[in-house]
Every structure is written in structure tokens, then in C-alpha cells.
Write a protein that binds this DNA or RNA. Structure first.
Lengths: 234, 234
DNA sequence: CGCCACTTTGAAACAGTTCAACGTCAGTGG
DNA sequence: CCACTGACGTTGAACTGTTTCAAAGTGGCG
């Protein structure tokens, strides 16, 4: 709720509508599928804890992760208007999520224009993140790409209060990271070593620590403007 | 209007609201910027003819195109809810576009829930296309990526009736294509030659002709489901 | 203890880049 | 009417970032 409230305050009525629209709380084990590609889920999932990923597969069996989601993110809000989900959703870590039945979301769009815009905004921000990933994959070296990704994850974790000191929980495997960046696990390993060698980050036991934010930001050409973390009327 | 109407029919009232929301018609020369990154436009642009691209720049000056837009596409509808545009918009060819003032779009969200959902859907489809591009960039060879891109462009052109026979207007330079695919112009040239050598496509004078759709689709692992070209209540 | 998932390492191979040159064609101006 | 220019496409050769393959190291857990 704090997250939804973040970019423009919701009225009491709107908050009640959100709570009323929420359904069951569901848990997933690390590695478990949360939604299947080409399915038509009857609800969308809001992450309450853990890390979830959207992914697609290629014929050879390789996987591309197209988004990572943490506390407060709707993983597949867009499924509400789509005929079929265009990607799978998988739990990277153990995940707890809240279901929002599509009928209830539809109800919100009928009755709460401002709240609807805020939900719409959340899918628009997903799009902005996709574009940043495209830029990083297409025109950045593996090293810069990784720096950018870590800056993004740090910033997003920070928005929802998941950063403590300079650290946040980032409990993925290097193979997951490879799938997110479109690289091989081997090269991810070597790139990671380079970031560690330069003392930009530390990543142990699922805890990512940013040792030198300025250097990391510069290396990854990271500008947080696209995350639009600004509170204003919308 | 036909495009907006395509995935779920609009009522007469809704169509009137769209027409009422439209503003000036504006023209751009090939190469001209239509919107600047980091600006806050007061209106969004709907393409009426030509090809527009969203792009971002990297420090070295290289460009990544993150989306291509043709007739019926909103290029930057999302700008309506964002504080700043996270990308630039450039005219690839001569472009004619219609402005939709953000105040008018806001008005639509207040009064027309169903129409709002249809506009929301159009930004969601942009997201689905972004994800497909991520998959292609991350996990496909240049050849498969290019095949995929051409399948997508063909299908989207077809939806808005821009395909004649097996051909559609695709008046970009190879350098534009390189910017869209995250490759060097030289490699785009060679990849293109390979597609021509295999007689999958022909591309001359800005006209793209798909000579062997099945082979192209298979090579690019293209499945049009993500474009969600289905008419149903939403 | 042994297994399994994950990380790390080395060496060879490769897809795609870079650089530099040349070709082609349309537009422009003398 | 021709020479000049500039944008775009094509080619060749050397180079490099990343992949692939294979093996070994590490650590948690039943």
C-alpha cells in the first residue's frame, strides 16, 4: 500500500477499494512457477516478499528474464487486459504474493479513475524499465550492463524500504542473473569478479552491498529518472 | 480509429470522446525529433503516417531504438502519466501525427472507463513488444532476431491494413535497423544479405517483401500471440 | 559421507565489431 | 551537362567480447 501510495497519494476511499479488491495470499517456493506463459490467469499477483521474475523461453531451452519484481510490484497486472499471458512468472526465491481478481480490478476501473491511473502508471513504469534493459543489452558492455542492473535493483529496493545501510537482499543465482542480462553464466561470473575487484559491490549469501555508489552509477550510466520516484498529482 | 476499435469495439460515445480529445495534426521530416528525452510534453502523439521510433542514447553517442511505431500507434501515450519522458522520439521517415492533449486524456479517464482500459491496453501491448525485443536481443542470433523483427513489423502493418500482397513500406536505413537491434550497421548488412540469399525477404526502395513467411517465422521463432490481435470484451 | 546445486577456472572457438576502403546513387550547383 | 558532395550500402581483414566446453572447487543438507 505504501508503494501504491508513493507516486501520488491515494484517498481513504481508494485505499479501501484496493483492500477490498485484494484476494487470497499465496506462497511459492523458490523455483516454482507462479503463472504459466499462454495461460489466462483470473487474477494478478502483487509481491509481498521475495523476488519474482517474468521470463520467456527460446526453442533451444535458454531462458530470458524480462523483469524482476520485489515487494509492492504487480508481477502481471497487465494480464488483466490481455487475452493470454505473453510470459511465464517464476519465483526466484520463496515468494509471498497477494491475488487481485481481475473482476475486482475491472470494478476499480469503473469506479475509481484516479486509482486506475495509478495502476496504469505501474504498468507504464514496467515499460520504462524494459526500455532501460533494452538499452543496456543493446548498447552497453556486460560490465556496464551489470552495474546498471545493480543500480536499478538498489534504487527500487530503496523505494520500498528494503535497503539497510548499503545492502539489500538479492538472493538470485548467477545463472538467474545471466538469464536476466542475456549472457552466459560463465561470463556473468567473470563480470561479477571484475565489479568485486574494483570494490564497487559485494554480493555474498544473497546480500548485495553497494560499496561505491558513485562509481557504480557512472559505470552503468544510471540515471534514476526513469523510475519516476516523484510524488505529484497524476 | 479502426486501430483503437480493433481489439474491442468502441461505442459511438467513446468514438466521439476520442475525436473530441484529438488536437492538432503535426508533420515531421525524416530525421526530425518529435519529442525530446527528459521533456514533459503536454500532449501525446498518435501516428497517422510514416514510421516513428523511440530511442535512448548512451554516453558514447550510440543509439538504441526501443520501439518502432506506425499508423494507429500512440508513440508516447505513457508520457501522460510520467513526470518526464524516459526516451526521445524521432521520425524515421516523414511522419504525420495527431496530438492528444494530456488534459483531454485525463478527461477520458474520468468519464470513459472502458475507453480508458483500451488506451491502457495499448501501452500494455507496447510492453509485450518490449519483452519480445528483450528475448530476441538476449537469446537469439542476429539472423533469428532480424527474422523476428520483420515478422513483427509485417504483422503489425497487416493489422492496420498497410500490407499489400506480401509487401509493406519499411523505409528505414540499415543503420536505423542496427540501432533497433543493438548491432553494428556492418553486421546488419551481412545478416540482411543472408536473409536475401535464403530468399526469405526482399527489401528494396523502402519496400519490404516477405517471400517465405513460414521460413521467416520459423527462423525468428515468431508467434503473434503477444500482439493479442483478438477482438473480445475487455 | 555423499550428493547436488552453485561458483570458479582455463582454453579454444565464434559471433559480432571495428576500421578502412570502395561502390552507388540522388541531389546540387556551376 | 557534368563535377562534386553526402548519405547509404557493401566488402575484406583484423580484432575482441562473449560463448562453449570441460573440469575442478565449495558449501549446505539429508
Amino acid at each position: 500500500m505504501a508503494k501504491l501510495d508513493f507516486r501520488d497519494e491515494l484517498t481513504g476511499d481508494e485505499k479501501k477499494a484496493v483492500v477490498a479488491a485484494s484476494g487470497k495470499v499465496v506462497s511459492f517456493r523458490a523455483g516454482e512457477d507462479m503463472s504459466l506463459q499462454h495461460s489466462k490467469p483470473s487474477h494478478s499477483l502483487l509481491v509481498a516478499s521475495g523476488i519474482a521474475a517474468r521470463y520467456s523461453l527460446v526453442e533451444s531451452g535458454e531462458r530470458q528474464i524480462t523483469a524482476l519484481h520485489i515487494l509492492g510490484d504487480f508481477v502481471d497486472l497487465h494480464a488483466f487486459l490481455l487475452t493470454k499471458l505473453d510470459h511465464g512468472v517464476s519465483a526466484m526465491t520463496d515468494v509471498v504474493a497477494v491475488q487481485f481478481p481481475h473482476a475486482a480490478l475491472n470494478q476499480i476501473t469503473q469506479q475509481h479513475p484516479h486509482l486506475t491511473r495509478m495502476l496504469w502508471l505501474s504498468t507504464i513504469l514496467d515499460g520504462a524499465i524494459h526500455r532501460q534493459w533494452l538499452l543496456a543489452m543493446g548498447r552497453m558492455s556486460a560490465l556496464a550492463h551489470m552495474a546498471h542492473l545493480f543500480c536499478e535493483q538498489y534504487t527500487r529496493a530503496n523505494v520500498v524500504g528494503l535497503v539497510e545501510g548499503k545492502s539489500f537482499s538479492f538472493n538470485l543465482t548467477q545463472t538467474h542473473l545471466a538469464d536476466a542480462m542475456g549472457l552466459s553464466p560463465v561470463h556473468v561470473n567473470r563480470t561479477l569478479q571484475e565489479l568485486r575487484r574494483r570494490s564497487l559491490i559485494d554480493w555474498e549469501d544473497g546480500i548485495m552491498t553497494v560499496l561505491d555508489w558513485n562509481a557504480l552509477q557512472e559505470l552503468g550510466q544510471f540515471d534514476d529518472a526513469y523510475l519516476d520516484a516523484v510524488n505529484r498529482p497524476r
